[in-house]
Nucleic acid binder design. Structure first.
Length: 496
RNA sequence: GUUCCCUUCGUCUAGAGGCCUAGGACAUCGCCCUUUCACGGCGAAGACACGGGUUCGACUCCCGUAGGGAACGCCA
């Protein structure tokens, strides 16, 4: 027990730290996935921490939705917030930054007392003026605070009188180079003068990302941080915080960004970007996981269809790609189709049942019937929602003749085909037609109406499902009742 | 503007100096299967951003250029 963990130099602990503003984005899901896989591969711990220090935008509702999306994807976590009760679990909590204010305050005070941070009373207006001037002179956009060297006593006096300052980090004037040993990008060098005195604590008492992130990662004993590339530049600030507080640095891995088809960062205007939307559109969690895993990572043997279990077993951070990737929905759809067809009839049925119910499509509960229906329809399904239009024709009463039937309806022979088909159906002794029944019926129409090929089977198909293309009729017809077939054939005849 | 990151078929990628006449997958096109459509099978077309080095040899290493992206917030 525990030998494995103890024999490792350090127990792997990774985290995904979403901010609860809206649904879980597919990019976020991929970041979560890689962290999850890294934990699984290394027998580590996967933690969810909530970065809700932006009071304006964070909502409890978003938190709930994001955790639900994570749960739907099957990325279960070992510490963090329970997706149902929204209560903390784990030994390094609280896991919401809004509940860790005391901790950040304590560390901010520590930095102030060490002379590594200071109260700053600069107003937005003053800062804007500085930026304007820097812009015009082509200088780096950095705050130069006159309060940098103000006596602490003086600052406290101001606070006493009601002023609300921010706390800024006091950057070292001595220039040096910070080196990040990035897991994905190798060595990245940052000149220390790339940043000015940045804010640690806002005037409303909330910490700023670069401060609380560093503290939490350190206190939660995070060993590896896989996060989006947009945080690469932030790493310098965080390193400065780590250094000032004497914390040990985790290993960083900066993931490439996911782009839309126009190669711009994937955003709302590209269409669906949240996992929730893909769920609604009938994508399977395993398929979405499979697809996003391949956006920046590759299977060692080049496999494309990969189960979650296999992902856990074969994941390696060494195969993570540093270049950004375009989100191709067409390929996602293919991946989904492959996963979907690998599902058993029962699994698939459980998933599509609510969708069909929702559409008012009622189908026989017979398992043999279901088996035949799936055998017929599975090759046509790419997403779960495809089942709706596939099964709709099998539902009583539902019948519409689609526009692409027009050509078949225009043929001269079609009318007699319909009439003959109705006649045969009326004369049929049982409630349904078997495969053989249908074949002989079709043959009879062929002989009696003297039509063959397209002119024979297209009109018949129209009379059955309302369109000229679709699944094989001899397999489809036995799934329907004679009564329904007659009703539809009559409707088709009338539509000429 | 400053700093940082990225660059192989349309798209996702393989590629750790000779295995590369650059491999796979999606998409596209063609053929086969099929009395339709889909599935499936087979096949075709399609890329190392550019320019310099280093090297006997470069997709691979180095330097530039170009293009794209990110950061520079009391957003994360």
């Amino acid at each position: 027990m525990g030998l494995k963990g103890e024999s490792m130099s350090q127990q792997v602990r990774v985290r995904f730290a979403p901010s609860p503003t809206g649904f879980l984005h597919v990019g976020g899901a991929r970041t979560a996935l890689y962290n999850y896989l890294f934990a699984k591969k290394n027998n580590g711990t996967f933690i969810i921490r909530v970065e809700d220090t932006d009071l304006e935008r964070s909502t409890e509702e978003s938190l709930k939705m994001q955790l639900a999306d994570l749960k739907w994807l099957g990325l279960d976590w070992d510490e963090g917030i329970d997706p149902d009760t929204l209560k903390d679990f784990g030994e390094h909590g609280p896991y919401r930054q809004s509940e860790r204010l005391e901790i950040y305050n304590k560390h901010a005070q520590e930095l102030i007392s060490k002379g590594k941070a200071y109260y700053c009373f600069l107003t937005d207006k003053e800062i804007d003026a500085q930026r304007e001037e820097q812009k015009s002179k082509g200088l780096p956009l950095q705050v130069n605070s006159p309060y940098r060297d103000q006596e602490l006593a003086q600052a406290l006096e101001k606070i006493e009188s009601g002023e609300k300052p921010v706390i800024r980090f006091k950057t070292n004037p001595e220039k040096k180079t910070y080196v990040v040993d990035d897991l994905i990008r190798n060595q990245v060098n940052f000149p220390s003068d790339m940043v000015g005195d940045f804010v640690l604590m806002r005037s409303n008492g909330m910490p700023v990302y670069n401060f609380c992130c560093a503290i939490d990662d350190a206190l939660m004993k995070i060993t590896h941080v896989f996060r989006a590339e947009e945080h690469l530049n932030n790493t310098l600030r965080q390193m400065m915080v780590y250094e000032a507080l004497g914390f040990a640095l985790p290993k960083f891995g900066h993931l490439s960004i996911i782009l839309g088809e126009d190669k711009q960062k994937l955003s709302k205007r590209h269409g669906a970007t949240s996992c929730h939307e893909y769920k609604l559109r009938g994508f399977l969690p395993e398929a979405l996981l499979n697809f996003i895993a391949l956006l920046g990572w590759s299977h060692p043997e080049g496999k494309e269809i990969i189960s979650k279990k296999e992902l856990c077993e074969t994941f390696s951070e060494e195969r993570l790609n540093s270049a950004s990737a375009v989100f191709d929905e067409t390929k996602l759809t293919w991946v989904n189709a492959m996963h979907l067809r690998a599902l058993s009839d029962d699994q698939l049925w459980e998933l599509i049942k609510p969708l069909l119910n929702n559409e008012g499509i009622s189908l026989p509960e017979d398992s043999d019937w279901r088996k035949q229906a799936f055998e017929l329809f599975k090759p046509y399904m790419e997403t779960l929602t495809d089942a709706i239009e596939l099964f709709r024709p099998l539902s009583k009463g539902e019948f519409k003749i689609l526009p692409d039937s027009k050509e078949a309806l225009s043929w001269e022979s079609t009318k007699s085909v319909f009439q003959k088909w109705i006649e045969i159906l009326n004369a049929h002794p049982t409630e349904a037609l078997s495969e053989d029944d249908f074949m002989s019926a079709q043959n009879k129409v062929k002989v009696d109406c003297e039509v063959k090929g397209k002119k024979l089977f297209m009109p018949i198909r129209v009379a059955i499902i309302g369109k000229p293309h679709g699944a094989e009729l001899k397999l489809l017809v036995p799934l329907m009742s004679k009564e329904t077939l007659i009703q539809r054939a009559k409707a088709a005849l009338e539509s000429i």
